[in-house]
Design a protein around this nucleic acid. Structure first.
Lengths: 346, 346
DNA sequence: CGCATTACTGTGTTCGAGCACAATTTATGA
DNA sequence: TCATAAATTGTGCTCGAACACAGTAATGCG
């Protein structure tokens, strides 16, 4: 096996200087056509791969990356994103990456807009964001598109946008929840419970609901009901209790976000341990209920990995000119009390 | 924010030349003590991180990596390892990595030894291997240790060896299987079925069995039996059929390797669909039975990721002098018919 | 023909770290 | 005091790609 070909090798093979090879590679013109063809064929023949490392040695640019993320202080779900981001930064510590993070309140659309505007003042080359609010995100993404700033989104997909997306297939994750409940729950009614967010603007919860329903629709033998319950954060406990008590044929509950622990608390105090419970995300409170068996399964959305991959893709795009995948779907992790531990690290 | 510090910057700050800085960094001596202390403090203060990329530009060594892997033609479980290896190679294509792969027959210990011996003739700098056979692997690993060749193992852990290991906690994965069966199966007996490999030399199957049993031991209310059945490849069908028919109180089956489809086939033909089945690995045959509901859950051991990480760790060790983690445990993925698709890519 | 313009090609420097070797300073001994 | 050895420090080249700029050849035009 030969050592890797360098520009110098190719220059020698072609009988020209490395300057000419460089001009051919980058289509910078000023090369006689016959020479150009000859060099191009040669490059093809030996499948020349430039040394990305040497290339970036010279190119010591400072890259500005903007991040528009939900404030973990307002919702613990987002805490682990920081780890993912730090991991990506440390992996690329050889390059000069400046990350400007702006946090917004995940319950407040205005805060989202404000943070966005402030982020713009740092003149980022590229953006990583969680487009939590459908309507607002759409307009913000349009802004970036017009400004010619590439964006990578995660957690929520805004289908109409051209922005790249990293996350899970939410429709399918609803189906996974349905399959799990169908496998473990006794025959009876199933409930979809949406807690805390503005349902209309939260496409992700609607998608999960659609998937959940589609699973039971596909079943030939299912004769019971799929109930639905929307709850605001302020009214959580009373409304939930009423819902659980009034539906006596209820055998399974699907909570469409990380708030399953609210339902778990009630199931425990009301002694309704025949009702199976499936929810999302490895918050400490959820994990506790999972371990004692009140929550049966959690679906892990892996926000850490989402943030990590998003930032990694962006950096590789800036530094190595790699293409960012338009849509990158993470696997849907099923978690029970026995396999939860290693996922807490991820 | 400042640009990154380089050796030149530090030399200027310390009022010496970059040669001296270099000598201090690498403890190459020939530096006056007061200067050395001054520079060391300065390096600490500004937290100097050398540019790994520039470092490796000069260091254009050719690294020889040996790989001792089971032949995918003999057992489809190993097929995806190739993908993981290719991914790692392409990620580090900037460096000159030469991979020498030797395959062995996963049912034949002699083939393992032979491949090992042949691999040694290529004088590898470092080794990636699957120590499938406990006794033989132990002696092979000792060979490498004496030759001062660092080894990274995956899939099977040889506890006594100093080699690094990537894989799953097999004891815990047995517990996961137990928890799943306990969650979905009716009250009754559970069976552990070992198919195809020499049980005594297959520590991984023993570990899974131990974990499985421990879960039921921890249960206070479990009054039924944990059965056990060892089956050779040649006798699979008849012995299995007899086992399934003779144990009428059987409600759940745990197959400790990727051969669950053998059991699934029988459960289907014998119409025993009240028996729940949990096995390992996303072989096409297993996935088919998972989709039609004969297999209820599969545990994904992610051999692709194991091979990928193993090679990645080795390369980063050679190229960047990074420490290889002594033990890297992958999460235990639970797979059902609804979340299987994205895992087939991994 | 001579000079300018265009067309093309080659040379040399840069990036950051590593290392060989040259250069300088300090110490030692006769 | 001076030569020489020893200790310390500085200089310059290398890696591969990128690019500015210098250099050369070919062509055009009066």
């Amino acid at each position: 096996m030969m050592k890797k070909y360098t520009i110098k090798d190719i220059a020698q093979l072609a009988g020209v200087s490395k300057g000419t090879i460089d001009r051919v590679i980058h289509n910078r013109g000023n090369v006689a056509k016959d020479v150009e063809n000859k060099v191009k064929r040669l490059l093809e023949d030996i499948n020349y791969q430039p040394n990305l490392i040497a290339r970036n040695l010279k190119n010591n640019r400072i890259y500005q990356i903007g991040a528009l993320l939900p404030d973990p202080k307002k919702d613990a779900y987002w805490e682990v994103c920081t780890d993912g981001i730090n991991q990506a930064l440390s992996e690329f510590s050889a390059f000069d990456i400046r990350l400007h993070t702006m946090l917004f309140d995940p319950t407040d659309t205005e805060s989202f807009i404000k943070s966005h505007q402030q982020l713009m003042t740092s003149a980022p080359d590229i953006i990583l964001m969680v487009p939590l609010f459908y309507k607002e995100a759409k307009s913000v993404l349009k802004n970036y598109e017009e400004a010619g700033i590439q964006v990578c989104t995660f957690n929520n997909q805004i289908e109409v946008s051209k922005a790249n997306f990293i996350g899970q297939d939410l429709y399918q994750s609803g189906r996974v929840a349905a399959k799990l409940l169908h496998t473990i729950a006794d025959k009876g009614d199933m409930a979809i419970i949406h807690i805390d967010e503005k349902y209309k603007n939260a496409v992700h919860m609607q998608e999960k609901e659609r998937g959940f329903k589609s699973y039971f629709d596909d079943l030939s033998g299912f004769q019971d009901h799929i109930l639905k319950c929307k709850i605001r954060y302020t009214e959580t406990e009373d409304k939930l209790r009423a819902f659980l008590i009034n539906n006596s044929n209820l055998k399974g509950v699907f909570v469409t976000n990380s708030k399953a622990f609210h339902v778990a608390r009630l199931l425990e105090t009301e002694n309704k341990n025949h009702i199976k419970l499936v929810g999302y995300d490895l918050l400490a409170e959820n994990v506790n209920y999972l371990k004692v068996g009140v929550i049966d399964f959690l679906i892990h959305q892996n926000p850490r990995q989402q943030a990590y991959l998003g930032l990694k893709f962006l950096i590789e795009h800036l530094v190595f000119e790699k293409q960012i995948p338009n849509k990158f779907l993470l696997p849907i992790d099923i978690i029970n009390s026995e396999n939860v531990t290693p996922f807490l690290r991820d």
